[in-house]
């Protein structure tokens, strides 16, 4: 039987809103190997969400050198879209899932084509402010459309658990880990083997050279925004059963920033790796350290790593040309 505290630490949402209430400090090993493994799995699940959000950051940053501060809000919109299809229209889960991802991908494409394309080449932090402004608009729009209330999304994974030996894992967490593995696999295959994927890599390495090779760079950029919005939507739908949906769900992206810089802002595998590290650190520090350290452990680790590896763990070392 799982003990109560392990049951409660099941989700990134739990860490976000600080729902974990452990009584004081515990020593590692006190609960045995089972507890460590249990925490590890929960941490990986939380980390997968961070990783997926960070993936969205990195996709966009690599290609267009924009830092998308509205990524978390795209996640929120995606979760609301899924809620609309599944919860309001009563469509089956998987159909709603696909429709939500598709509509958000179209949204991302349009967003780039209409708004973001205009500011390419402007100072980087004009763009940052732009996406911060977009984030404000998205949150406000979500409040206007769906209201400020908290929504739940029923999924096939809710309220069931799987048992692996002594470790008990809620199916929701399994779905998050599985979903992340699937997305990572698809991304890897896409960028490695498809023509479009290679074109995207080319465009992100050198726009001008990509132009000369006949790659439609603008279209490619819009497609990257579409993919990024789609990934955010998947993260949002996977997160929805554990964290509930409301217009401020997107603030989880602030933690994903740690993940993205930790792994290196220019590396897709790094983003996922960074997410996993942050997720696991959060879970362990919540249980084994004094209460005050719970919220600072992840930023402290990220800062230390950055001080040693200024480009993140897997980021490209940039050399300057004179």
């Amino acid at each position: 039987m799982p003990r109560r505290h392990t049951e409660r630490i099941t989700s990134p949402a739990a860490t976000t809103v600080g729902r974990i209430t452990t009584t004081g400090r515990r020593l590692p090993g006190e609960g045995g190997l089972t507890e460590v493994l249990q925490l590890l799995v929960n941490g990986l699940a939380a980390g997968c969400i961070y990783g997926l959000i960070a993936l969205g950051f990195v996709l966009i940053y690599k290609a267009t050198e924009m830092v998308n501060f509205a990524q978390g809000d795209l996640l929120m919109l995606g979760a609301f879209a899924a809620y609309t299809y599944i919860g309001l229209f009563g469509l089956p889960y998987w159909l709603g899932f696909i429709l939500a991802v598709l509509s958000m991908a179209i949204f991302g494409f349009t967003l780039d084509a209409v708004v973001l394309r205009r500011v390419i080449g402007q100072p980087q932090f004009a763009v940052v402010i732009l996406t911060i402004g977009l984030g404000f608009i998205f949150r406000s729009a979500a409040t206007l459309i769906w209201g400020p209330d908290i929504r739940t999304l029923g999924t096939p994974f809710s309220n069931s658990i799987s048992q692996f030996g002594p470790i008990v894992i809620p199916d929701v967490n399994l779905s998050i880990i599985g979903g992340t593995l699937a997305i990572s696999g698809v991304m890897y295959g896409f960028f490695r083997y498809t023509k479009l994927g290679v074109a995207m890599q080319a465009a992100s390495q050198n726009q001008l050279a990509a132009y000369y090779m006949g790659i439609p760079v603008r279209l490619v950029f819009s497609l990257i925004w579409a993919i990024s919005a789609g990934v955010a939507t998947v993260a949002g739908i996977l997160l929805a059963p554990v964290s509930l949906i409301d217009p401020s769900t997107g603030f989880i992206a602030i933690r994903a920033f740690s993940a993205a810089v930790l792994g290196g802002f220019t590396s897709l595998p790094g983003a996922v790796l960074g997410g996993l590290i942050i997720g696991v650190i959060e879970q362990f520090s919540a249980l084994y350290l004094d209460e005050g350290f719970k919220d600072v452990a992840a930023p402290v680790v990220a800062l230390i790593v950055l001080a040693v590896y200024p480009q993140g763990l897997l980021g490209q070392r940039q050399r300057k040309r004179v």
Binding site: V115, R118, V119, Q122, P123, A126, V127, I129, L130, I132, G133, L134, G135, F136, I137, F138, R139, S140, A141, T143, L144, P148, P247
Partner: peptide, 22 residues
């Protein structure tokens, strides 16, 4: 009277300024 209007207007103004006068 809608809640959450103010941040939205704030965001709109930000976006407009950056788009038209970076």
């Amino acid at each position: 009277q809608q809640p959450g209007l103010e941040p939205g207007v704030f965001g709109l103004i930000l976006v407009a300024i950056i788009l038209f006068e970076p």
